[in-house]
Design a protein around this nucleic acid. Structure first.
Lengths: 351, 351
DNA sequence: TTGTAAGCGTTATCAG
DNA sequence: CTGATAACGCTTACAA
């Protein structure tokens, strides 16, 4: 490969900007001096304006502006035992749905002065445990979890933190604290019912063996039985559920030569992988094989045929979680601490 | 909608776990007492084991284990003036490419004890400036930017921080500090050359008006001129480049009734939006209209026809950035502080 | 190699 | 409503 060409990146200069001077941070004391008050008054004016007289409040505001003061989050957290950090446990930051939830969460929390910090658990209990334990020192203001924490030890640990905690992505009984979730059980039921309506009788399941995968598998199997559908095969994997895993699972399934008309894949990416694999092997979809997913990936709509799947509003999960947290952080008591998020089956060409 | 069904979420209990006792954090002093040494020795053993004798090191290790000690990051940052935080400026956390880079970055930095914290700039100079200024107080160990910082004020501010900084996603001259990027200019040239080879003469451009969009537009226009292609129309938007924006831009373009054979969209999502819109309007792709993108979205491969696009290894950008940072944080001097990432044109059905 | 003393910048506490 | 004082838990600087 030849020498790369340089990009002429745009540079925007603000003419008012002084030269790159010293970066010594401004401390609260400097602001106080400028405003002619004591440091603690500045602190109060910033955190709880009502505690400070109108006149001083204004002088302090100007001094903050003039100095470009930002309070030191470490000092604040150290002394007060509470940081502005909201810890978000995400099993997989590449997941579109989880990213949307984090986006929604951040949109609500950032204007209130909190910072969302991601903890990538990578579907590992061990990592999760380490990360949970480190929270005692980090002292987050609240904790969000894309999912439900399964390890009892971690659950009780989090509860002991004494901060608002929101679990999500399932409609579980007795959450650690608060919950914003949908019923995986109902979602899987809807798929089973949809298969029955479409006249498919011999079905199969592909999904992760733990967590939501297990919930969806169990409910699917139960409702298939109820509706007289025969589950010919269940393929479960404990790896991340991506397109490659979906392809691989579909490959095994097809090579086993089962007599299957429709497959429920417990995540959209699995389903899309499966769909691609099946298509490449010359199967007509949905005539020779129907496929349904779970999760509302954007891909589900763009692929052809479009993927029939269960859809929930991921961003909204984050938004609601943020709102619950804020209420609690303000000392209010939300009337409901378990929010139910509606889901629906979107019928597209793959079934 | 009827009452949701509860999910029976799996709960895993570790039998060895004691009851949910007090959550009072363990301090370094407690570890020191248990190991029979002074706190500062524990501190040293944890940060720089070589400074402490073998025997004590082992006793301290055991004491840390026994107590479940985690050092308080706020106290550490406050006193040392340096935190374990690596700040990652991401314009859009929903971008698959940026998420991959962050994933790569985190994979390298976390084992070394650093924590990657995302700052969502949302393509806003104002937000970016606020976030940059807040770094003086946060005292990050290093800064990663998915892109090149354009505001001179912010550039000099970051430089003044005195920590390793890695810009990316462009092969720019004089970065703030270090750089891991590819040439957008070359990428756009490759598209122009590809259009020429395929015999398209009348072309158009769709992209964001600033940042990388501008780089790609400029280079594309230049090379079109060189190759004798006529750029009939350039549609630029200053919004986020998603599928809806692509649809909308394609709609305007088609309604203007230009005589266009091929369109270069400066991002894959724009291209995919454009492709969907064109297809829905009955245009045969690529016969009646060819479309190329930039960026290697997974969608590009799955959609039909597949999208011809410029591909770089996003995760690798993050990995390399992490490695550069670690070297500097260890006091080493990397021989090259500007890494070039190769790109290639992947030819699929859309052109 | 180890320890002592001091202080990072903020806020809880208590007094006015 | 405002201020003085001390303390959060750690690490730097210096001493032994």
């Amino acid at each position: 490969m030849s020498r790369p060409t340089y990009d002429d990146v745009l540079r925007v200069s603000s003419p008012t900007e002084e030269a790159s001077a010293e970066r010594r941070p401004v401390r609260i004391e400097e602001v106080a001096r400028l405003a002619g008050v004591s440091p603690i008054t500045v602190s109060r004016a910033l955190r709880n304006p009502k505690m400070v007289s109108e006149a001083r409040r204004e002088r302090i505001r100007q001094a903050v502006e003039a100095t470009g003061y930002f309070s030191n989050p470490h000092a604040k957290a150290l002394r007060s035992g509470q940081s502005d950090i909201v810890a978000a446990f995400v099993s997989n930051i590449l997941s579109e749905q989880f990213s949307l939830a984090v986006e929604g969460l951040a949109e609500v929390l950032e204007p209130a002065g909190f910072q969302v910090v991601l903890s990538r658990t990578s579907y590992s209990y061990k990592r999760e445990t380490t990360l949970v334990r480190s929270l005692t020192a980090t002292r987050p203001a609240a904790v969000f979890i894309t999912g439900v924490m399964e390890l009892e030890a971690n659950r009780s640990f989090l509860r002991g933190l004494g901060v608002p905690i929101v679990e999500s992505w399932a409609f579980a009984r007795d959450p650690i604290d608060m919950l914003v979730g949908f019923s995986n059980t109902d979602g899987a039921r809807m798929v089973a019912e949809h298969f029955a309506e479409r006249g498919y009788r011999k079905v199969a399941f592909i999904g992760r063996s733990g967590g939501r995968g297990a919930l969806r598998r169990k409910s699917f199997a139960m409702h298939c039985e109820r509706l007289g559908l025969q589950v010919q095969r269940e393929i479960t994997r404990d790896t991340v559920s991506g397109v490659p895993e979906g392809r691989e699972a579909m490959r095994s399934l097809l090579e086993e030569n089962h007599d299957v008309q429709a497959i429920f894949c417990a995540s959209d990416l699995l389903a899309i992988g499966g769909l691609l694999e099946a298509r490449e092997r010359g199967l007509r979809i949905p005539d020779q094989l129907a496929i349904a997913g779970f999760g509302d990936s954007t891909l589900a709509e763009e692929i052809s045929p479009g993927l029939t799947t269960i859809v929930a509003d991921s961003r909204n999960i984050g938004t609601q979680a943020g709102e619950l947290m804020l209420k609690r952080l303000r000392g209010e008591t939300p009337e409901r601490t378990q929010k139910h998020v509606p889901i629906e089956l979107v019928y597209r060409g793959s079934t």
